[in-house]
Each structure stands twice: as C-alpha cells, then as structure tokens.
Design a protein around this nucleic acid. Structure first.
Lengths: 149, 149
DNA sequence: CAGATCTCAGCTATACTGAAATGC
DNA sequence: CGCATTTCAGTATAGCTGAGATCT
C-alpha cells in the first residue's frame, strides 16, 4: 500500500519538525492537486470559499483573510471573472474598492471543489485514526494561531 | 506574545489539513530562515547534513535521500564548493559519478547550522508541550512514510 | 497632507522537465 | 543496445516588493 522504497533521509533531518512539515506539505499538495484534477486549483478553492462565506468583500480584505498576496489575488480574480465564477462590482460607499461576489456558477463550482478537497483530505490522512486526525488538526491550528502574522 | 490581529480565514478552510499544513509550513520556513540568518539556507543545511552522515556519496543518491531535485543539487554544490564547504571528486569505480565530501570547514559550518536550526524549532513549537511536540513529530513522520514517493 | 485600494511589472525561491554528453 | 549520472536550459508556480493611479 505504501509506495516503493525510498532511501532514508539524514537522521538529523528526520526529526526536525520544520523539515517534516515541508515534506508532508509538499506531498499533501500533490494529493490535493490530484483530487482537484482539472476542476480548479487550491487558490481558486480558497478564493471561492472566501467569497461565499464573506459575501461582498473588498480585495484587500479578502487577501488578508486568505493570507494571499494582493497581487496574486488580482490574477486569480481575472481568471475567475473570465470563467464567470466571480464578479467585481464597484463599491458604492468607497470607489477605491471592488465589491467581490461569487456567481451562481461559482457556487456550483465551489460545491464540486468542496467534494474533491474532502476526498483529497481522506487520501492524505488515510494512515491516521479518527482521533489522531482531530489531534493533528488541533495541533496545526494552535501553531497557526501562535504564529499568525 | 502572539502577534497582531489577523482577520479569520473562511470556516471551511480552517479545518482542512492540507491548507493548515501549507500555512504552518510557510510560517515555519520564515521562523527557520530568521534563525539561520546569514549563516545559510535550509537547502544548504540539508545537503551538508547528508554529506556528513552518508560520507562519500554520488549526487544522484544524495538527491534521492534528500528528496531534492538532481538539477537543484548541482547549483547548491556549486555554491558549497565555491565556499570551500564541500568537494566533488571523481569516483574511481564509476567515472560517471562524483564522490561528494564535506570539508573540515563544511563540518564547522554544519555545527553552527545545527544550533541555529535547533533554536528555530524551539521557536516554532513554543506553544506545544513536550509531549505534544513528540506527538506532532510522530504524526508527521507517519504521514511522510505513507506518502513516500 | 497621510492613508487605503487596485493594478501592473518584476523579482526570488522552489520544483520540475527535457535533452545532451558521458560512461556503465 | 538499454540504463544511469551529471549538467544545462527552460518552464511553472508561490510569495513577495515597488511604484503608480485613484480616492477618503
């Protein structure tokens, strides 16, 4: 079940949390990318999820919420608008801002992405028990909260 | 202690392990980069650690052990040789291969990196108890083993 | 004036692919 | 011949910086 043989990494690296995090994160991204297939990217998923939950929102605020750079969000929104999954509208109360909305088609696409992401997490956490998965998520959340930039 | 206020991410993302892994991994890299300062990079540390533990070794084998691309290893070794921290020598038994060695200066540099990495891990895992740190490392190791490519 | 927002151009690091040259 | 190793060139993406235009 667990793929082929890979020669072991240096002893001192194998117990370094940050190195383990990088390795596991990289593999997790591949698993999720496989689960998403041609349906979208991780960034697309995050942006659509943010738009659905936070309703009309400005780009600056969304970029802060997602921890996504303001510059990269511009490109992602261009792509989403081209595909009819999101819309930029002028904010009446502040002309500097765009009010971002998810479209009906975007909501449909998001549902599909939800399902695929869920399947990806299942594949990722396969070796862990239910209790261990909860513990793992909890530990990550605490680390994230502590290092919130 | 925990830095400023950051608006919350979408609910559905905050419990997705792969998303948490990406966020924590990214922050961990910054913490470690700060700890390393001008003394080196994470890749340098991994390569030097591999050279010290595995003695004379070929580039292909080292790249497999570190999960580092053969191409990127070339560039890193060029840099290490320029700084006198590692050497490439011809492999007598197979002229296709380079036999890689760490130098005395490289071993000294590695010691310094060891200390700095250790300090970085301490900063990274600050919010966790000793038992939780062990549990966290153990969970990551099991995930890595299962998804060993 | 300071400050926020959106956009664009460009940079760095990481990861990977393809092909050539060499030698098993 | 097939196969492995090293090297170089190129591609793709993520994350980030700086600056300009616009507006409060």
């Amino acid at each position: 079940m667990t793929p082929p043989d890979r020669p072991p990494a240096p002893t001192c690296l194998r117990s370094v949390p940050s190195w383990l995090l990088n390795q596991v994160s990289s593999r997790a991204n591949k698993v999720v990318a496989d689960a998403l297939g041609q349906s979208g990217s991780r960034r697309q998923y995050a942006v659509l999820a943010g738009l659905e939950e936070f309703g009309p929102i400005s780009q600056a605020e969304l970029s802060r919420r997602l921890g996504l750079d303001r510059s990269d969000l511009v490109a992602e929104l261009n792509s989403l608008e081209r595909d009819g999954l999101a819309r930029r509208e002028p904010d009446k109360s502040d002309p500097r801002r765009n009010a971002l909305h998810i479209t009906a088609a975007g909501a449909v696409a998001l549902q599909d992405l939800h399902d695929r992401v869920r399947a990806g997490q299942e594949a990722l956490l396969a070796p862990l028990s239910v209790g261990e998965r909860a513990e793992f998520v909890s530990l990550l959340q605490r680390l994230l909260a502590h290092h919130a930039s």
